[in-house]
């Protein structure tokens, strides 16, 4: 299937709408493809379009607020600018919050959860960490303001890389299969239901125009649909190289610059092939251009955010 340039732009607008109506957007992909940058750009674009947006990181070291030129926000939901909040979700703090929500009293928490025997047991419940991380994020998805309207219109999650994202997002279902009825199972059930509701949750799969990342994206796409049952809403082909040199250009250039142009043409061709391969799975796709900014900064995220909103290369 070949999609013309015009249709691609329309597709892009459709995509913005696709993402706009979903409360929860989970950004994932192979390591090193630019998940964090895409998550930051999406969050920025969403905030600019007027949606109250929270962007969540779960991978330990905080990158999004610094990327946007702000100080690190830590584990408290912190306002970055109009309509945009950020939080770094860490297991220890998330567990504490989660336990307090269930237990109501700080004193009980300290007595129980800081007991070293209990710590041993908790550590041995393998996916408790993932569950509380996910739990905190989903809690924010359900939070309301005093007037009953949702606290956030949009939650963008910078999720772990492919394999771990599958484990991460499967945790509620795995726990449902594992733990007998009880508070934990009840929580796991509402998390599972929220994640698998196509009207609420959509996954954004970030890829690069190279063979291995593209294959991994195809696998991730299949796993999300069949195993995790989280709806893939959008594929972002990052670092896309547009064709720059025509066949005549190449013929007109002497060495050594012929090789330079040929190298570029080869990357552009690979980009085009990868786009075709990814388009074939039927999920809307947008390309983001390769940026030559280093280190990546706010301006780069803004440019990518605008690319999302306007359907134009920055």
């Amino acid at each position: 299937m070949v999609i013309s340039g015009d249709r691609r732009v329309n597709l892009r607008r459709l995509v913005i709408r696709e993402l706009a109506h979903r409360r929860l957007v989970v950004v994932t992909g192979k390591g090193g493809v630019g998940k964090t940058t895409v998550a930051a750009a999406l969050a920025l674009a969403s905030a600019r379009s007027g949606q109250r947006t929270l962007v969540c990181e779960v991978s330990g070291k905080e990158r999004i607020a610094p990327l946007l030129g702000r100080a690190e926000v830590g584990t408290e939901v912190t306002s970055l600018e109009q309509n945009l909040w950020a939080v770094n979700v860490r297991p220890q703090e998330a567990l504490r919050e989660y336990a307090l929500m269930t237990l109501k009293f700080e004193s009980i928490y300290s007595a129980v959860f800081e007991n070293r025997l209990v710590r041993y047991f908790l550590r041995f419940i393998p996916s408790l960490q993932e569950l509380v991380l996910l739990g905190k994020i989903l809690f924010h998805a359900k939070e309301t303001r005093p007037d009953g309207s949702p606290r956030f219109d949009k939650i963008v999650v910078d999720a772990p890389a492919t394999g771990h994202a599958i484990s991460f997002l499967s945790v509620p279902q795995v726990l449902l299969d594992t733990v007998p009825p009880g508070a934990l199972a009840t929580d796991a059930r509402w998390m599972r239901d929220l994640l698998t509701d196509p009207a609420t949750t959509g996954a954004v799969l970030v890829s690069l125009p190279e063979e291995l990342p593209v294959n991994e994206t195809l696998e991730l796409h299949a796993a999300l649909r069949t195993k995790v049952k989280v709806t893939p809403a959008l594929i972002v082909l990052n670092g896309f190289v547009e064709e720059r040199f025509s066949a005549e250009d190449l013929a007109a250039l002497p060495e050594p610059v012929h090789a330079t142009a040929k190298g570029h043409a080869a990357r552009a061709e690979l980009s085009a092939q990868c786009r075709l391969k990814l388009e074939a799975i039927g999920t809307p796709l947008v390309t983001l251009p390769r940026l030559f900014t280093s280190p990546l900064d706010r301006a780069a995220c803004e440019a990518l955010g605008r690319a999302f909103l306007a359907g134009k290369a920055p």
Binding site: T102, L103, F121, V179, P180, P181, G182, A183, L184
Partner: peptide
Amino acid sequence: TISRFTGTET
């Protein structure tokens, strides 16, 4: 307290 959190059977 723990069982309130995890369920007794767990």
